[in-house]
Nucleic acid binder design. Structure first.
Lengths: 165, 165
DNA sequence: AAATATCAACTGAAGGTTCAACTGAACTGT
DNA sequence: ACAGTTCAGTTGAACCTTCAGTTGATATTT
């Protein structure tokens, strides 16, 4: 006994810091954006994707994948945003099954109003606190994790055996 | 025009990688733990805190703060876990307002069964992918962010002006 | 060309989270 | 001791997400 935990102490400390820090960070960003614009961070992120896309328009599936949301979740979120006039749905000419989510003028306005505040929060909570080297490492490391995890779409049960066991 | 974004390109790239990576990571860990133990990552984290605490017992408020959950959310979560026999509530002698959340034998059993799988996921998705130096930087950086953000409890509107403006 | 499988998206119900309001306990100042 | 305030936790309704199942469109196979 005594050996209660799987990782060594340094790994454990770092991992705990990550879990807590990432939770606090998302909470703080969400709090700020709701206070300033009355919209949630999730909704902001939808608008951000659309605002950056050519034509302000992205296919539902691409949006869901980009945001790491389920299709169903995105459908509901977009429905609510649509009813508030922030986005619109448009049929996809090329693929009869497809639907474009398109940002409206009101959506752009709302995004433009929220963006500086959100950027200031990210700056204050993250960018100002890190040296350029640290930011570089953080970006590389999280990018690598993201790349490894992208495209692992809902695998069948037991897949872990292939990766881990 | 042209100057659409607040941060420079490197900062932007790193931040985007962080946002996407952290979302994918939490999703993957949640998926694994649900597949293996039928409980959510949130519930696992509650059991983890309790299992590590002396007496398997933690005050509700401390648990909520530690997990970065609202009090209300924790109340509901603990209620559901209680009804499945994983935890119990006990009155706090010292403070008449206080309530202890205590892990049950079944809770410990459930935690012990889930812990190796979760550790394997963390190992596979994170620890195995990072050099010791990278892990060190990740831990330091996220620990710093967490420390800065801890104790910023729901501040009044306009507080950002103090920090950012 | 028909049958089958797969895919994009939607739907409604169930489950989880948030929000505002509430209870009762503990401080604070008078 | 009293009134007012703050604190710990709960409650229920509103809101959001998940899950399983459905629809209609595209691929694939024969």
């Amino acid at each position: 006994m005594g050996e209660r935990h799987a990782f060594d102490s340094d790994q454990r400390t770092a991992w705990r810091a990550y879990v807590r820090g990432s939770a606090l960070l998302r909470e703080a960003l969400n709090r700020d954006i709701e206070a300033q614009s009355g919209m949630s961070l999730n909704e902001y992120e939808v608008l951000e994707r659309l605002a950056e896309a050519p034509g302000g328009s992205v296919r539902m599936a691409a949006l869901a994948d980009g945001l790491v949301h389920s299709r169903s979740r995105l459908t509901h979120t977009v429905h609510r945003m649509e009813s508030r006039g922030l986005v619109e749905r448009r049929a996809c000419e090329a693929d009869g099954r497809g639907v474009y989510c398109v940002i409206t003028p009101l959506g752009e306005e709302t995004y433009d109003a929220a963006e500086p505040g959100h950027a200031a929060s990210v700056q204050a909570y993250v960018l100002d606190r890190l040296t350029p080297d640290e930011l570089d490492v953080l970006g590389r490391v999280m990018g690598r994790i993201a790349a490894d995890l992208s495209g692992e779409g809902t695998p069948r049960a037991g897949y872990l055996a292939e990766r881990v066991g």
